[in-house]
Design a binder for these strands. Structure first.
Length: 783
DNA sequence: GCAAGGTC
């Protein structure tokens, strides 16, 4: 018999061929199409690989005219399948004609079923010849079993996936057009709407709103330092929400010189190893070391195709039994992790950790070959190392820590001190690059003994707003809400950026992103809610289990969409106006003092700038600050009356400043003093394109004097020059120092090199137990 | 020029 096997990706074609042919398969792969042939058990096999979906749902051409066709009329429009990769489909068409059996061997999931079915349907294959091989890992056992127990293809499962396609396209296309047309954003500036992107955007909008509306609540912590080590003890009633209550305690303990140890226990804590990497956690951890999810996926794909790591798109956090941990470790001996690997191999037994998520699509991400940092460079190496170290951590021993709990009584008030000391670092030894250590020592104490009080402080703090999402935490939240899939989440975030809905490293929605979300919340029929995805999910389960049909589910959804589309159409003007005004406010800076026209943000080939709409008659223009996120404001500069901008820079609080860099309000705070090199120019605070600040001479390029500035904290002029080197002295975080890091007053040449961006840690934010996200802000010394 | 889902 002649048998045709269709796989989802090239690697699967290779693995299956090798397994079924006992290694005797021959690849005839062309440039575009992977084809492998072999004989086994008297049958002639041809294996062809797809590249995921090679067909795509879209509307027929007559719907291409956005202006000419009412979006309402598209609700029930019938989409067609368009061929994306003709070369593969043609090849399969040829082989199908001469095959007696066609075996779909795509991934064993909903999309896999559809990918297979849509392909055989598109080439008009005789469906009675079509069989399905179901395997959940590309191991010898699984694959052989799947091919010896072929089943019928599951039309219902494929239907479930197809229902999703149709519903996503109709809601997406109809609402995208309605929003774009009503807001006047057509052409390449169109505004998109979708089942996944719109709820994701709403997460950011909601968080932004929470932060903007946040009202800080003050609280007080009483903190003591004890004994020779001056270890920290905190009052058990922290935080105090009333200053009076805290003051009462402070005066009660005011005269105490010693405390009494009431309780003291030491215990060992076992610290478990982290779970193996699935795609989400890999993206989260990569993001922490400065590799955003989209870059991480690109690099992971690269590492996968060149054989360094396993398949990077997986939801699994449990290594399959068939995967030998020792085997992986042996391969890693051929790398610069050799010593660490050998140490791990010395364990009596190697039992890996496992996570909660268990699926059968692919194994967790693990290294499949050794590499070294002199051959592999940059972020690729950083990601590879992360994957290797994560793997090592999952097969290393547990860590142990010594935990000390201690209670000290001071004048009838109770303080608690917690000690944490790492004993056996275990797996952390291999993963410490990516961990924060937080050791705190409490010495050995005797219960009933006295202990000296070193200090008693009342620290005033206030509750803090929740953190903004970054790309890592957003991906985690999407994962939790089941928005998108492991393969698409990073692309969805990319979409929010390219549509200008969000900006910044910490994701902030733009005015238009916010306005769009608000309008859709009101009129979008639930498109901004994650529940639309959960409803779809349960509908798909119903279809695949035969409790509902594709036709019914699609019809129900489109009936809803029809109502929504009609309503929006009837209120089109009003619906679009909110978005239009948000778009205007995003661009509008203020009125031009020369000609009275609007000044707006404009784009040139050198980037964005502020220009007068009266151009070319009026040429008034201002540069925009570099390397920063800019928001427009409605306030005017008290100095010159021009408009002000809100400047948001990484690691710094937002600053409101005048659009004119020459305005006194800007020069005063940026001019640090006379240049000690040329004695002509002024040393000013400036920003590089990347947003890093430094100080440089205004006579540049004639004078090239520059100084690095500490990346965080406030820098202000002091008006004085350094007595030792003559460079300007500045106020840094309230204290004075010479701007010159090489100056003797700052320890001369012992200066550390500037901190690498990726390794900058967030400044300490210690949380208070009862309220979320609280942190210490100001200190008041009392004792 | 529309979505989201595969994969490269």
């Amino acid at each position: 018999m002649r048998k045709l096997i269709i796989t989802e990706k090239a690697n699967a074609a290779r693995r299956i061929s090798t397994i079924l042919s006992d290694g005797k398969s021959k690849s005839e792969s062309g440039k575009d199409v992977t084809v492998i042939k072999f004989e086994a058990g008297g049958d002639e096999y041809t294996v062809v690989s797809l590249r995921g979906h090679i067909l795509e749902l879209d509307y027929p051409e007559e719907y291409n005219d956005w202006g000419g066709i009412s979006p309402v009329d598209m609700v029930y429009a019938e989409p067609i399948k368009k061929v994306k990769v003709k070369s593969i489909l043609n090849k399969i068409g040829e082989f199908v004609k001469t095959s007696d059996e066609i075996i779909i061997a795509t991934d064993f999931d909903r999309e896999g079923e559809l990918i297979g079915m849509e392909t055989v349907t598109a080439v008009n294959a005789d469906l009675s010849k079509v069989k399905r091989a179901k395997f959940s890992a590309l191991t010898k056992g699984e694959v052989e079993k799947a091919f010896s127990e072929l089943t019928e293809p599951d039309k219902k499962l494929a239907d479930a996936a197809e229902a999703r396609q149709i519903i996503d396209l109709s809601w997406g296309a109809v609402l995208t057009r309605l929003v774009s047309l009503s807001s006047g954003q057509v052409g390449k500036n169109f505004m998109s709407v979708g089942r996944v992107q719109s709820p994701t955007l709403k997460l950011l909008v909601d968080r932004h709103e929470e932060i903007e509306n946040f009202v800080p609540v003050p609280f007080w912590n009483i903190i003591g330092k004890f004994g020779m080590l001056a270890f920290k003890g905190v009052h058990v009633k922290n935080p105090f929400w009333s200053k009076d209550d805290a003051d009462k305690v402070m005066s009660a303990i005011a005269d105490a010189k010693t405390g009494k140890v009431k309780a003291y226990t030491v215990s060992m804590k076992e610290e478990y190893r982290p779970a193996p990497f699935d795609t989400t956690m890999m993206q989260v951890e990569a993001n922490k070391i400065g590799i955003p999810p989209s870059v991480a996926m690109k690099l992971a794909e690269d590492l996968y195709t060149s054989g360094y790591i396993s398949y990077p798109r997986t939801e699994n956090t449990e290594y399959p039994k068939s995967l030998s941990m020792k085997g992986v470790l042996e391969k890693l001996k051929d790398s610069e992790f050799k010593e660490e690997v050998e140490e791990i191999l010395k364990q009596d037994k190697i039992v890996p950790s496992r996570g909660k998520k268990r699926t059968t699509d692919h194994p967790p991400i693990y290294p499949t070959a050794g590499a070294s940092s002199d051959k592999m460079k940059g972020d690729k190496w950083k990601l590879y190392e992360l994957i290797v170290r994560r793997f090592l951590a999952t097969v290393g021993p547990n860590a142990t820590a010594e935990i000390t709990d201690c209670e000290i009584e001071v004048a009838g008030e109770t303080f608690k001190a917690d000690g944490y000391v790492q004993k056996d670092p275990g797996w952390k030894k291999y993963y410490k690059k990516y961990l924060k250590s937080a050791e705190s020592r409490v010495p050995k104490l005797n219960v009933g003994g006295e202990i000296e009080i070193r200090s008693k402080n009342l620290e005033e703090s206030e509750t803090k707003p929740p953190y903004r999402y970054n790309q890592g935490s957003l991906i985690q939240e999407m994962d939790r809400l089941q928005l998108g899939t492991k393969s698409t989440r990073h692309e969805i975030i990319g979409k929010l950026f390219s549509r200008n809905y969000v900006e910044g490293n910490n994701l902030i929605p733009t005015a238009s992103g916010t306005a769009l979300t608000k309008s859709l919340e009101k009129h979008g029929g639930g498109i901004t809610e994650p529940e639309m995805t959960s409803k779809l999910e349960s509908d798909m389960i119903d279809i695949s289990e035969g409790n509902n049909t594709l036709t019914e589910v699609v019809k129900e959804s489109q009936n809803m969409l029809f109502v929504v589309a009609k309503k929006i159409t009837s209120e089109k003007e009003q619906f679009g106006e909110d978005i239009r005004s948000a778009l205007r406010s995003e661009q509008f800076i203020g009125l031009c003092p020369t000609c009275g026209s609007s000044m707006t943000i404009k784009k040139s080939k050198n980037g964005k700038f502020i220009g007068c709409d009266g151009y070319p008659e009026c040429a008034r223009a201002y540069p925009l600050p570099r390397g920063a996120m800019i928001q427009t404001t409605e306030t005017a500069c008290p100095e010159c009356g021009l408009a002000q901008l809100k400047i948001i820079r990484k690691g710094m609080p937002p600053v409101i400043q005048c659009i004119d860099p020459k305005c006194k309000c800007n020069t005063e705070k940026n001019n640090l003093g006379l240049c000690p090199t040329c004695h002509k120019g002024t040393i000013r605070i400036m920003f590089s394109k990347g947003g890093r600040r430094f100080a440089g001479c205004s006579e540049w390029p004639k004078c090239t004097q520059t100084y690095p500035l500490r990346p965080r904290g406030t820098v202000a002029p002091s008006g004085d020059q350094c007595a030792v080197c003559g460079a300007p002295e500045v106020q840094f975080n309230g204290h004075r120092e010479c701007i010159n890091p090489d100056c003797d007053t700052r320890g001369g040449k012992t200066r550390k090199t500037p901190v690498n961006k990726a390794t900058v840690k967030k400044t300490g934010t210690k949380t208070v137990p009862t309220k979320k996200g609280t942190s210490t802000k100001t200190k008041k010394e009392i004792a």
